[in-house]
Amino acid sequence: MKSSTISGLLTIFHKELSDIFTSWRFIILFLIVFVVGIGVVWSAAQYIREEVVDAQFVFLQLYTTSSPLPFFTLFIAIIMPLVGIILAFDAINSERNNGTMSRLLSQPIYRDSVINGKFMAGVVTMGIMLTALVLLVGGIGLRMIGVPPTSEEAVRLMAFLIISVIYGAFWLGLAMLFSIFFRRVATSALASIAIWLLSIFLFLVLFVQTEQSGLGLAVSQISPVTVFWQVIYILLVPGARTLSQVTQSNVTVPSSALSVGQSLLIVWPYLMSILMLTVICFAASYIKFMREEIRST
């Protein structure tokens, strides 16, 4: 009984993963993310070679330096939502519209396996994508700047990776929630994109904001993009410790660097709020989907 549940989940997971890795939609997205990501870091490495003399945390600067192109972390903060949305905006409603959901749910599997399997496939995809990207970018960066990451930098990058996946998972969950609530694929896609754009807009308020302690700052905090960006910024710029430093974009390494533990301690609440949002999306998805009637028409 138990094992059959897991096997059902794994079957769905495997199929969804295959679907993702064979869909043009995803392959194109994958290529775009890779090309842009590598471009951003290449330009950052170039900049580091020419401009940066401070060799402290130089490997991390690959990911946080703003050369002519905006930096890698910013790119991730903005693109991950899109990845999550593209992976999940039609997860449930397209199956419902195609009539496959009825067939799927008439098999001996728990309903949550459908959501979980799809979610897992999405998260694993994002994990693969981000790990490959960060490593690839690191490899290229290593070749260009010739400085290997210190163990501390490696830990920070690992944390960055995990947090980015969690962040992507939130968007995945949100898009999936919409795909459960909205019957039409176009509606769920538009709703997800709208939230994404709104979040980016709120995030940009951070930068437009001139004084540091304004209403804009508080409003901006609503945006998951802002929250995520704070987290990775504090994590990858070991000297940064407050939001005000985060907004002054091109801070390299301010005075005294924090230890990994201290950085993590600072970002913990923010991280928890991203996790909370993900859990909320998930809970709402469950509540709606678990007892819902599945008609094929």
Partner: peptide, 27 residues
Amino acid sequence: TPAFWGWISILIVIAIIAGLSVFFWRL
């Protein structure tokens, strides 16, 4: 770039491309 890190970086890039290829191929 020190030759060692140069090689490591090439290895990383090859490993990732190989890994991704395997993923795309298998899946």
